[in-house]
């Protein structure tokens, strides 16, 4: 299962590499030289990685010099919690797109603290208020960042 997932990840990189190199075929040399110089080794290395993954070649000590994800919980629990975490992150992004940053910030904070974190109403409301206040003060009042209006508001205004 894990071997297939690894091979699939390598395959995605391989296909993206091939697509990137193929895209250069109609470009002028000054535009295409660099992506070709980099893209061809990328495709070769990705193909080797896919073959090694499919053959189940040993990964040696398999640890990259990088941080590691926790592997102490049962795989099904890890998979479920990972999906939930990504759903919240993507949900916040969608909220920003639909209703804009200023409204999405307190809404997301309150929803996460109360819905996912099971925190008390009082703590959730206070922390959501603090987050909104800090956001307004730093990014709006001090830095004057131009935050895009939410898509829903734009549609409703028409």
């Amino acid at each position: 299962m894990r071997r297939n997932a690894q091979a699939l990840f390598g395959l995605v990189i391989l296909l993206a590499g091939i697509a990137a190199v193929v895209a250069t075929r109609d470009w002028k040399i000054q535009t295409a030289m660099y992506p070709r110089v980099v893209g061809i080794p990328l495709v070769i290395l990705a193909a080797i990685e896919v073959v090694l993954s499919l053959r189940g070649a040993p990964e040696g000590e398999r640890q990259a010099v990088d941080t590691a994800l926790s592997e102490t919980l049962p795989p099904d629990v890890t998979a479920r919690r990972t999906r939930v975490a990504f759903t919240w992150i993507v949900g916040f992004f969608l909220a920003i797109v639909l209703i804009g940053f200023p409204a999405a910030v307190p809404l997301f904070m309150l929803a996460y603290l109360r819905g996912q974190g099971r925190e008390s109403w009082a703590l959730s409301l206070v922390l959501a208020g603090v987050a909104w206040l800090a956001f307004e003060l730093i990014f709006d009042r001090v830095l004057h960042l131009p935050f895009a209006e939410g898509l829903l508001l734009q549609i409703l205004r028409r």
Binding site: G39, L45, E49, L52, E59, G60, R62, Q63
Partner: peptide, 15 residues
């Protein structure tokens, strides 16, 4: 990382 496989992935990530 340690070993040829880790190096392969290192260069792949670099590319």
């Amino acid at each position: 990382g340690r070993g040829p496989r880790a190096m392969l992935r290192g260069f792949l990530a670099g590319c």
